[in-house]
Computed example of a mutant assay.
Amino acid sequence: MKINNNFNRWIWLLFIVFLILGLINQSFGLLAIICMISPIAAGFFKGRIWCGRYCPRGSFYDQVLARVGKEGRRIPPLLKRAWFRWAVFVSLMAFMAYNLFRAEKTLAGVGAVFYTMVVMTTFIGTVLGYFFSPRSWCKICPMGTIAVLAQRGVKEPITLDSERCISCGKCARFCPMEIPVHSFKEDGKVLDPDCLKCGVCIKSCPVKALHFGTGRKNAA
């Protein structure tokens, strides 16, 4: 089941425009800073909602990459391990810092570093998404990792109505991050910090037990 909100449906086109502009003039690579800061800033208020709804590359994975490859692809277990997540974070940040240090101190020089980082990580994410779950990269995305820390818990979690929930597990099967949503039945809220607030679990629930906020309504 695809993520299906208004921004996520089309914002991947901006990602393609960014890649084209970066080929023309690498100063445009500086635009990547927006997508580095935004998930962290949003994390302080609403958790990883940027990743699930507004991230152009995440939209590309949902709307394009999800359409190719086999059905039922899963996230590799290694990517779910905290130590591996942090190893990726440290490695990529060190790689970026080293290249920024060596780069020509001009808009084009610095922009080229950010553009290269985007292209490199997108290639890795696309390969992972083709052979495994389309959102595999999001488990180890450095900015997503910091967003998890920024929220200091779970901000504005999806609410689970324990009286309605029948523990069928359908929500977990469709979750792009493979979160066992129904396991939070007793808590009444989906407390996994990697929840993208994408609404897929809400749409997949056959008894309408999941919803945003306190009202009983489906995601738009």
Rank of each mutant, 00 (worst) to 15 (best):
E186Q: 12
Y115H: 12
R216K: 14
R67P: 10
F212Y: 06
V154M: 11
V200Q: 09
I179P: 03
E156R: 10
I33T: 13
L19G: 03
C35G: 15
L79N: 08
P206S: 02
W83C: 10
I75A: 07
M143D: 13
P193S: 02
W50S: 01
G69V: 07
K203N: 14
F60P: 00
G199W: 02
Y115L: 13
E156L: 11
I49M: 08
K170D: 11
R74I: 09
L210N: 01
F101V: 13
G29T: 06
W10N: 14
I16H: 05
F212N: 04
P180T: 05
W86F: 05
I11C: 06
L23M: 09
R85H: 13
I49Y: 05
S27L: 04
C51L: 05
G69Y: 06
I3W: 03
L31F: 11
F184T: 02
A82V: 15
K70Q: 10
W12D: 03
H211K: 15
G52Y: 01
V88W: 04
M1N: 13
Q151S: 08
C141M: 03
Y98E: 07
V88S: 02
N99R: 09
A66Y: 14
F44V: 00
K2M: 11
N25E: 07
I34R: 03
E163V: 07
N4C: 08
W137M: 12
V119L: 15
S91F: 15
I24S: 06
P180W: 02
W86T: 00
T145G: 11
C201I: 01
R57F: 13
L21P: 02
I75M: 00
C141K: 00
F7S: 12
K155V: 09
L191H: 03
P180D: 07
R102G: 10
G72H: 05
R85W: 08
F7M: 14
L79D: 07
A41M: 05
M96A: 15
A219T: 15
F84L: 07
L78M: 14
C165M: 04
V181E: 01
I158Y: 06
